[in-house]
Structures are given as structure tokens and as C-alpha cells.
Computed example of a mutant assay.
Amino acid sequence: MTANTITGSMVALVTPLHGDGAVDYVGLKRLIEWHVASGTHAIVAVGTTGESATLDYEEHIAVIRATVDLTAGRVPVIAGTGANSTREALALARGAKAAGADAHLSVTPYYNKPTQEGLLQHFRVIADAVDLPMILYNVPGRTAVDMAPETTLALAEHRNIVGIKEATGSIERMRDVMARRPEGFAVYSGEDNLGAASMLSGGQGSISVTANVAPRLMSRMAEAALGGNSEEAEHLDGRLAPLHRELFCQTNPIPVKWALHRMGLIGPTLRLPLTPLADFCHAGLEQALGEAGCLDRQ
């Protein structure tokens, strides 16, 4: 894989669970088949939207392997492999490679707040040891550490580090990295409300929560944006805008799992410490789903 091989709408897929908390592999197959049929361009397995923080190592690798098997090469699979321990992130990256993932997504270590030098060393250790394309993931709102553009650009010189998912909420940050990146280094939006703008600015795609519930609209929007059709991309993104907002009325993935259950695709189960969607969010999310045609699975 080269940096620009994986482009478009990449769903940050939820991990469906049975009522007892066990992984629901029948539900996972249902979601994957729907995404492939709906034009989703790649699937991110067991990222943070997939509740990676509460799956143990064996479950984590099993879900990656199942996703690889169920997609059967029809779309690329990006495995979530991030951890705040470099040793754990390295083990997950090795497990993802063994499971057959096409690439892996590694979030900046959370809670322990490494320095920029610590981030450089963390990602280089993993990239040196595992010959699998790595996408960095910067989401300071969840990790309490912000990877500076200069750190990203230094890491971009590594042959196995092929892109970054930027979730700072700043289109200017993404444009800055795009302007200075080495040839072939991909920039993906990690904020659904900036996905269209980032692709129209030269980004390669959106790693999306919204794509969980509106995969066809998201894939059409991404194709328009990547094709430079700003009018069509902005029109479709306007239809998606209420979802971009309401799917974050509480902590992700609480709202998106409620939405998928409302659509009849998965059960409602989350693992503690996540809890069910608060009542005050229901009406707004229901309305957003209806406006985007999701209740008819459009």
C-alpha cells in the first residue's frame, strides 16, 4: 500500500455487542455487508469508535481478524492499534499484521501526556518493528496530548508511516500539514464536520463516525469532494450536517450505537464505563436520522 491507496469514506466501525457484553459477530457481518454494498471505501476495525479501550487483547485481534475475513478483500481494512503503552501498541500492531489488515491506525498515547520527543520515539519504535502501513491519529480532545505539525512531518519521512487522521477540529491544521507533507503522505479528516472541506483542500478522505449510519451518502460526498466537485460535495454534506452534530450530543460511540439500534442493525449494548444515550438526545438524533434518510437505510 502507498499513502494514497486508501481514500474516500472510511467508516470508524462500531463493535456490536450482545446483551452480555460479548462481541456479536453476526451483527459485525451484517454491518460489513451493508457497508460494502453501500460504497464505503474502507473499514476501520476496533478504533476508538469500536470501543477499543474496553476490549481485551484477544478480543481486539479477533475482531480485526473477523473483519478481514468478512470483507474478503472487497475493501481495505485498517486496524486500530493505539495504546498509551508503547509495548502494548507494538503488540497490537504485530497482531494486526498477522490478522491480515491492510494498514493500522495508531492514536497518540493518552493520559500519560508524552512530550513531542516521546511521540517521535513511540511511533518510530512501532514503525521500525512492524512492516505494515501506519496511519497516525491525533485527537487531543480525547488523549490530552496534541501532536505538533512538525512532529507529524518528521514522522512522515518514515517509510511505514503513510498518513495521519487529524481530529483537532482545525481545517487550518490539516491544510498546514498538507502544504508541507512529503509526496504521498495522506491527510484524513477525523472530524465529520470537516470531512468535505478537508478533501476539497487536498485531503485523501474522512475516517468517519457518520458513515456508520449514512454510508451511501458519505461515500457519494467523498467521491464528489475527491473529484473536485465542490457544489455536489457541499450539497451532500449539507444533508449530513445534522448527523455530524447530533452523533456527538454525548460521548462517541454512545449516540451512534443508539442510532444503529434504532435502525435495526445492532443491539444497544455498550461496555462500561459507557452508558446508554440520555433521553434529551433522542429527539434531535431521531430527526437527523430521518432527514438523512437513514431510517430507510439510504
Rank of each mutant, 00 (worst) to 15 (best):
T5P: 04
D146Y: 10
D20V: 01
S206Q: 07
A129R: 08
Q250F: 07
T152S: 10
D56F: 13
C294N: 11
A259N: 05
E157L: 11
P109R: 06
Y110L: 01
L277H: 05
S106G: 03
R271W: 07
R180F: 00
A214H: 12
A66F: 02
A93T: 15
E58G: 02
V145R: 04
S38I: 01
N84L: 02
V23S: 08
R239E: 14
E51Y: 08
H261L: 00
P242D: 12
H18P: 05
K97W: 09
L194N: 14
V14R: 07
T151S: 12
D131C: 03
F280S: 15
L136P: 05
P273K: 11
R30P: 01
G238N: 14
T2C: 00
D128W: 00
K97V: 10
S198F: 02
L285G: 01
P182I: 01
S208V: 09
D146T: 12
V77G: 08
Y111P: 00
G284K: 06
A241T: 14
L289A: 09
V125L: 12
P242V: 08
T151E: 07
P182W: 04
T269D: 06
A179C: 06
L90Q: 09
G190N: 06
N138G: 06
L272K: 06
Y110H: 15
T152C: 15
T269G: 14
S38A: 15
L28A: 15
